[in-house]
Design a protein around this nucleic acid. Structure first.
Lengths: 189, 189
DNA sequence: GTCTATAGGATGATAGAC
DNA sequence: GTCTATCATCCTATAGAC
């Protein structure tokens, strides 16, 4: 078992503080104080505040991207793929619930290169999810509602799941998956 | 037709900027520049930055509170009440889409008195919605899924509707209501 | 790897002239 | 009602000692 590096410790502390107050409202002094060191010491491990944000957001964004690619690579029905996407969100929520606050609310404070990279990943993700739903409708597996409404309705629930997951005190993952799949899917099949 | 006061102009400008970058990332200078005046001039109309935030958030929060009271006062089925709640969210989204960003993401920066007042309203609102759903389940109108999952799933979609509404370019309200009600309700009845 | 000291600039807010 | 000038404080980040 490797002990986590000082850099990872900084990122973990920042992730929690960003979750509580948002990126802009948290100062380098806040992060340092929470670690019982001085703000200047942080710069021995990271090069800027934006780098911290970038590491938090892009790491999780890449997990979504890889997860979606795996779902697309499957040889299964559209409805089964939607189920897999729901499970992907739940797994990431369980493992990185606090990081999702930054990803949802503070992505616009990324520096330009990272911002472009993030927006691209998010757009691709939505587009992939959209085509799964459209294929499901064409195949007659999913009811012919406006695909955009279905996409938005499922995605907005999954994207804010981290807020609820924190509040409820870490429900059992498998029960969560079963119930979420029921509620989100039963309405559209 | 009364022309809007300078104070309302400040609030409208701040609402837009808070929507784009978040409360903490927007300075009084930013607000003033957007109005083509100097930051010091703002203080002739408002007493602090937090007062602006408070006016934005509490005004909309009160609309939700009043709207929910009207729904509860109705003599109708639980499922009809859920429909009315969905329509309430859509109406508020259409009329105050930018203010909903502050309400969703910046409420924690309210000063203490307003913070308490806001949290109370939000908790009461959720509790009222929860009991409508529970009554619907007891009456056999709503499927007996975990009420918390139903509550969260509907509420998180409605709460982030403002993001989607902005992006889609102002869909027709009545079409939006019909589609949202279908997608959100059909899964649980 | 952490510290003190500090640069250089932004921030919310006030005082007082016009 | 807006301005200029300014205060006191906070901010990110760097330099250099230990």
């Amino acid at each position: 078992m490797k002990t986590i590096s000082r850099k990872q410790e900084i990122i973990a502390t920042a992730t929690r503080l960003f979750y509580e107050k948002g990126y802009t409202a948290v100062s380098m002094r806040d992060i340092a104080t929470a670690m019982d060191i001085k703000a200047a010491s942080l710069y021995n491990h990271i090069k800027s505040k934006q780098e911290i944000l970038s590491e938090i957001i892009l790491k999780v964004a890449e997990e979504f991207t890889v997860g979606m690619e795996n779902v697309l690579a499957e040889n299964s029905s559209a409805i089964k793929k939607v189920e897999k996407v729901i499970e992907l969100h739940i797994d990431i929520t369980v493992n990185h619930s606090e990081a999702l606050a930054a990803l949802n609310n503070d992505w616009m404070h990324l520096e330009e290169i990272d911002l472009r990279s993030f927006v691209k990943m998010r757009e691709d993700y939505e587009e992939n999810f959209r085509s799964i739903i459209k294929q499901g409708i064409e195949a007659g597996e999913i009811k012919p509602y406006h695909p955009e409404v279905i996409l938005f309705s499922i995605l907005s629930t999954l994207r804010t799941l981290y807020l609820w997951y924190q509040k409820r005190g870490k429900v059992d993952v498998n029960i969560l998956k079963k119930d979420m799949v029921s509620v989100l899917i039963k309405g559209i099949v």
